[in-house]
């Protein structure tokens, strides 16, 4: 029974990773950009939610509704101001640009908010502590279920959007062949900017969920980036459903590892990630990445 509990907690933890990985997967799938500032953008989202929640005295969930549109606009601007020019410089330049952006964000956050550790857990109220106790050893937290529902809604919704809407088809077409996309009237730059906007907004959501679930500080980003990256690779790049599954597998690997011995928690996740890289699937991943 304890193992059932471990796996369920893993699924709920994995939902957080899937939320983080969503935007990373989208940007890599559409533009072949690995956004090294993704975790830090999520932390910016967490701080914005914190500011809105404390200044306006509202629940963090209400604050998220206000922050998401702001981050959509910020993402669009980020693409036009930075990424668009970087992309013109070849595949390595966006990597360097986002690496630099990550450092800038971390330092600005330290300057503005101090290095104090914060949490939105208390502000979110009873939802963070309440749980359903199914048996003596098995309890499922409300917030864990809310996170899982959000992850399924977000990744599933985006996957359906890409498959069934005109804008989604444009995004897929541009991802597969940007040159040919322009020849059928698609403004590839606008598509890229839209994808970045969605990615940044989902990162902000992920950051807020992390901040409610545990704690955050200006330098929380890189760790979350690693987990998100592992989730994308485990799930297979280019598929949002795969990213959801990848996040959950990573979460289970960490809780199972952590149950064996608390210091094996992160190791469990890294081992699954390395196993996927070493498998035949890892080879197809490398092939996909090098596709022009």
């Amino acid at each position: 029974m304890i193992w059932v509990s471990v796996v369920i907690q893993g699924v709920l933890l994995g939902a957080v990773y899937a939320l983080f990985a969503c935007g990373l997967s989208l940007m890599f799938g559409v533009m072949r950009i690995i956004n090294l500032a993704h975790g830090d953008i999520a932390v910016v989202g967490a701080y914005l939610v914190w500011v809105v929640a404390t200044r306006a005295g509202v629940s963090p969930f209400v604050a998220m509704v206000a922050v998401v549109p702001v981050m959509l606009v910020a993402g669009y601007g980020l693409h036009l101001a930075l990424l668009r020019r970087s992309l013109a410089g070849g595949p390595l330049v966006p990597l360097l640009t986002t690496f630099g952006l990550a450092i800038v964000i971390q330092n600005v956050l330290q300057q503005v908010f101090s290095p104090d550790v914060r949490s939105l857990g208390a502000a979110a109220g009873r939802v963070t502590t309440a749980s359903w106790r199914l048996t003596g050893e098995l309890a499922i937290s409300w917030f864990g279920i809310a996170t899982l529902a959000m992850a399924v809604l977000l990744l599933g919704g985006l996957a359906l959007f890409l498959r069934h809407t005109g804008l989604g088809r444009e995004m897929r077409a541009t991802a597969q062949d940007p040159d040919a996309a322009q020849l059928v009237g698609i403004d590839a730059r606008a598509v890229y900017a839209r994808a970045t906007a969605v990615a940044v907004a989902t990162a902000a959501l992920a950051g807020a969920f992390l901040a409610i679930r545990s704690t955050f500080e200006p330098t929380s980003g890189p760790t979350q980036l690693i987990f998100a990256f592992e989730a994308v690779v485990i799930g297979g790049t280019g598929s949002l459903w795969g990213t959801l599954v990848g996040g959950i597998i990573l979460g289970i690997a960490q809780t199972v590892g952590g149950h064996i011995d608390p210091q094996y928690s992160l190791l469990g996740g890294h081992l699954v990630f390395l196993a996927v890289l070493a498998s035949p699937r890892g080879k197809t991943l490398a092939a996909r990445t090098s596709r022009p």
Partner: peptide, 11 residues
């Protein structure tokens, strides 16, 4: 209609 057709392969 470009040389090599250039369809979107996964669509």
């Amino acid at each position: 209609v470009p040389e090599g057709r250039r369809l979107f392969p996964d669509m």
